[in-house]
Structures are given as C-alpha cells and as structure tokens.
C-alpha cells in the first residue's frame, strides 16, 4: 500500500505542476476566454436583444439556435484546447530541458508520463467545467429548469476528448516539436468524427464484383473497427431538440465510458512504449 502510494505521489506532483504550467500558456487561455465569450454572448446578449426588439419571451427557435451555438462552441474550442495541450506538454519539456532535472530525480519514466497525462486531463476537465458550467447557468436562467441533459453531454464529451487526447499524447511522445502531433490530433479528431461514413462505404462496396471495390470495402471495414467513433459521444441533437431535463435516450453511457477508457489506456501504453527508450 505504501509502495503504491509512493508510486502515484510523484506523478501527482508532476500533474499539478503540468496543470499550473498549462494555465500559463497564452494559446490555451486565449481559446478558453474566447469560448466563454461566445457562450456568454450567445446566451445573455441575445436575451437583451430580444427584449429590446420583440419584448417577448425567447421563442423556441431562438433557444434552439443558442443551444446549437453553445454546444458547437464547447466541442470546437474544447477539442482545440485538448489537442493543443496534449500535443505540447512533452515536446515543450524536452525543448526547454526541464525534463533533464525531472527524469534525474527518483521518477521512473512511466511515472513521469503518467503525471504529464494526468496534468493534461486536469486541464481538459477544468476547461469543460468552465464552459459547460457557464452554459448550464445560462440555460437555467433562461428556462428555469435544471438542464441535466447538458451535464450528461459534457460528461460524454470528456470521454470523447480523452480518446483524442491519449492518441495525440502518444504521437507527441515520439516528436521533438508540437507541430506534428497537433496536426495528427486534428486528423484523428476529424476522421474519428466521420467513421460512420466508413461503414457506409463498407455497406456499399462489393456490388460491382471488382477486386478493388471489395478491397476498399475491407479497408473501410477495418478502419471503422479500429478508429474511435467519436460521433457516438455527441448528444447535440438531443440537447437541441429535447427538454433540458430529459434523460439521454438511445445512448449507452456505461458502454461509452468503457469504450473511451479502453482507447485511453491503449493510447497511454503506446505513449509509454515509445517514450521508454527515448533519448532526451
């Protein structure tokens, strides 16, 4: 037990340090402030305008638009922050050589990586809490109903980000700058959001009987199986179309959580496997 505690203590301190350092990054803070401004603007400002012009309660149409804007803002700015921070924590530390002093302390490489990864997650969670929290308050003020559906959505969005974060982090462990892993992270996010189409490709393939047609079908099928399907984590249509306090329907939350964790663990193992023998 004491051993276990000692093993996680080091990573924890590294995580807190990473978190504090992350908050110093202008890009990250910039994204965060922008997203909060957009959410704030979309929710509160529109109500002023409405009152000024129509003098009526917000119509259904307006509310849908506001929800759409906010959900999209959270996912776009959220994923940008996620990718940016996951891609840069390790390369930055190699570049500025802080890693020399840290790895020369009694900290094993897996502990170091674990600390860094944990720190990244702290930043992502903090962001989601701030953005989701503001949206939550705004919706509550507007509709006077606790928007619990939004909480579920933010919760699932975290697991979506976790997948992208873990895979980006792994690639960053092999790079000496954060440019390549950032691009890779965007690629993973975009293809991960389009995996449903791969299934379509598979379903439609093989009809002509040509060998390459079948081959493309197979490739699409394999990719569809390997790549994370990020669309599953989205409750956007539900949030826009349902009541704020409706329970999420048609989604299997525990399965999605496990699905996210499996990808995260694979990403972390990959990161460690790359970093284990890396010369710094």
């Amino acid at each position: 037990m004491q051993n276990l505690l000692d093993t996680v203590k080091g990573p924890w301190f590294i995580a807190v340090y990473t978190w504090r350092e992350g908050l110093r990054r202008k890009t990250l803070v910039g994204f965060l402030v922008l997203s909060l401004l957009v959410i704030f603007g979309a929710t509160f400002m529109t109500s002023f305008i409405n009152q000024a012009t129509v003098g009526d309660v917000t119509t259904d149409m307006d509310l849908k638009l506001i929800k759409d804007i906010c959900v999209t803002t959270i996912s776009i700015f959220g994923i940008l922050i996620t990718i940016f921070i996951s891609a840069s924590v390790v390369p930055t530390e190699i570049e500025n050589r802080v890693i020399y002093t840290v790895l020369s302390k009694p900290v094993r490489r897996f502990q170091y990586l674990f600390g860094k990864f944990l720190g990244v997650q702290l930043i992502i969670i903090m962001n989601l809490c701030l953005m989701g929290g503001l949206f939550f308050i705004a919706l509550y003020i507007k509709q006077q109903i606790l928007p619990t559906l939004l909480l579920w959505s933010v919760f699932l969005t975290y697991f979506e980000f976790l997948i992208v974060s873990a895979l980006t982090f792994a690639i960053a462990c092999a790079s000496s700058s954060s440019v390549l892993p950032t691009i890779a992270g965007l690629f993973i996010y975009i293809t991960g959001s389009l995996t449903e189409y791969l299934k379509d490709v598979y379903n439609r393939s093989g009809q002509s009987g040509e060998w390459f047609d079948t081959l493309i079908g197979y490739i699409a099928y394999i990719l569809w199986n390997i790549l994370p399907n990020l669309q599953r984590f989205s409750l956007k249509t539900q949030i826009i179309n349902s009541q704020p306090n409706d329970p999420p329907t048609d989604v299997l939350i525990p399965q999605l959580v496990i699905y996210g964790l499996i990808y995260a663990v694979c990403g972390y193992i990959l990161a460690y496997w790359i970093f284990r023998k890396r010369e710094v």
């Binding site: 340090y17 110093r24 050589r97 002093t101 840290v102 302390k105 009694p106």
Partner: peptide, 23 residues
C-alpha cells in the same frame, strides 16, 4: 544540467518544493 532552464512562473522556493516532492 548544462545551461538549464527552470520554470519561470514559479518562485525560487516553489521550484525547490516541486523537485523535493519528487524525492
């Protein structure tokens, strides 16, 4: 380390606390 960099955003004693914790 040679010509090393230490986190600018921390105070002298905070840096030492961080490294000490790693021990």
């Amino acid at each position: 380390p040679e010509g090393s960099y230490y986190p600018d955003f921390l105070k002298g004693e905070e840096i030492l606390r961080f490294y000490g914790q790693l021990y």
